[in-house]
Design a protein around this nucleic acid. Sequence first.
DNA 1: CTGTTAGCGCCTTCAC
DNA 2: GTGAAGGCGCTAACAG
Lengths: 365, 365
Amino acid sequence: MTVTLADVAARARVSPATVSRVLNGNYPVAASTRERVLRAVDELDYVLNGPASSLAAATSDLVGILVNDIADPFFGIMAGAAQTAIGEGASGRAGGEKLAVVCNTGGSPERELTYLTLLQRQRAAAVVLTGGALEDPAHIAAMSAKLARLADAGTTVVLCGRPPMSGGAVTATLTFDNRGGGRRLAEHLIALGHRRIGYVAGPAERTTTRHRLEGHRAALAAVSAADGADGGAGTGPVPDDQERLTIHGPYDRRSGYDATLELLRRDPDLTAIVAANDTVALGACAAVRDLGLRIPEDVSVAGFDDLPFSVDAVPALTTVRLPLHEAGVRAGRLAMGKEAPPPGGIATIGAELMARESTAPPRKL
Amino acid sequence: MTVTLADVAARARVSPATVSRVLNGNYPVAASTRERVLRAVDELDYVLNGPASSLAAATSDLVGILVNDIADPFFGIMAGAAQTAIGEGASGRAGGEKLAVVCNTGGSPERELTYLTLLQRQRAAAVVLTGGALEDPAHIAAMSAKLARLADAGTTVVLCGRPPMSGGAVTATLTFDNRGGGRRLAEHLIALGHRRIGYVAGPAERTTTRHRLEGHRAALAAVSAADGADGGAGTGPVPDDQERLTIHGPYDRRSGYDATLELLRRDPDLTAIVAANDTVALGACAAVRDLGLRIPEDVSVAGFDDLPFSVDAVPALTTVRLPLHEAGVRAGRLAMGKEAPPPGGIATIGAELMARESTAPPRKL
DNA sequence: CTGTTAGCGCCTTCAC
DNA sequence: GTGAAGGCGCTAACAG
């Protein structure tokens, strides 16, 4: 029924081993022989049996890319870039390519582990984990163990936009400077004169959430110390109870909307809202407008990530740019061994402030 | 080094065959035996060898989902929904799950075929193709042939948000009513009084592009016939040369921006711009604003898809809603055989007009 | 440079 | 309900 390597060998009048060699291209074969084999492959419309090949070779050409939310362009951009970088070297004829494949965990720790097991089962050549990690100690331990096993089995592990993990299982880590980005964004608002700033944070247990928030708080703490109790140059002092001005929620539009309504209810004198990311910021903008307030005259709003739609928001969204595409490409190359890991295995990727129209000096009270 | 099924059998004091039976769960095994085997699996931290298993069984648990652009939420939402639907039935312990995996073609026909070959190689259990198809006859023929081979090998093929293909290879097709959506959107604008409407279309050779445009043109042709030469109730007659008011380009923000500038240069009297999708519409909005025109007072703008950000655009974007999530879930279930195919194998999914603030009656001249 | 020989780890009839 | 044996299709030493 299905044509096998032996059939090709018969038609080309060579041994199966020779066919295997020309197909894998990692062994010298006479040009004329190769020619004959390739022709037989075409004539028979032969397709290699992946499982058989993987079984015999004890490796596969599968590369897994794990993302938290495939519907979020934040992950889509990174994953697409990584997939492209991995798919390169395509000889057109589906020769030695890897099958780069993205797996959507939906942010669920169980599914994250399940996917890793599934990939382990397939003897994946490499695994790329993208985006923030969960801070639950049990889950971290489970992940470390799982990654260690994968590495043992020869799978390359790359982290992209994710904090470093202890243990030697990880080949390379590309981590975003979320803390620095958060800090610079807050400093930008402070420089404009803002002191009462609401913060719509992401899910509490995620590293990305914590780091961005820490950067934000650090900037506020610094100005608080400098200004003294009188509030310095800005509109009053930095409020003491930052917790009250922070609301956690998922990384979606709805969370931004609801949290912003609540923040402005708790403290109608807020002059700015900072959101966990651009999507959340969009929701925040909608809430501000629905309250009859203007952006940025009445309330400034800022996001994070600089997704493609952010520049088209009205007013254009002030945010922090993360080089998602570049990071994805690099992660892909790292996973394929096309690029040497950074010194120490860890590279920090900068986050750049993009000051646009959604932030401005606060209205004088 | 790596623990095999035989190791588990030895530890559980049963035969390899028995271990296989409890792992696959498709054969009666005594409860006590099963218990013992499962314990051994846990103690040894055994992970099934996928390739070996697939080779012996001649099937794999891999399911491929092909998308044109993973960074576009249009595809992300469908793919995520499909992946979730396929991943269901997870017994928690990575038992009988499928490995649902998304492949990004980047809209390239070669990569589409390459991915199918790769999936064929892996003996994928099912393949879901999402989004519009290329209309190049050669590519269509190649795709049909490839899908036929996949189907022959036992792979289920499902089309989601894609036009039907001839040939019996496809198990089920879910196709969007792009034509109807385009028509209803145009009718909405016509009812508001618009007659001179610019159209920023997608890539010329894609079915989605053509169908949406056809719907649009059909509505205009109808009103043109009804109004007669005097222009009827609207602001003047429907222009004859629709080609001149149509510009093709990729499905991205930039294309919308550039094409809109060009359209308004060609005909400054346009009262509305219709975009191929919401992302393009965002670019169109930016261009209109940069020309110093107001939306919708000076120019109405509309999109297609109703992606999550569209409701937060300012003004909120009039668009056509496609039930992407529902379609994705259904495609996933179809791929898993959890749901019977629609009668005739083809189901058309409706497209609903979402009239919002970015469209209004044209200013009187 | 090419052919021969063993398995890779598992599933699946068959017997019991 | 369980064990024994053969083979799935390919690759990787070895020879030659």
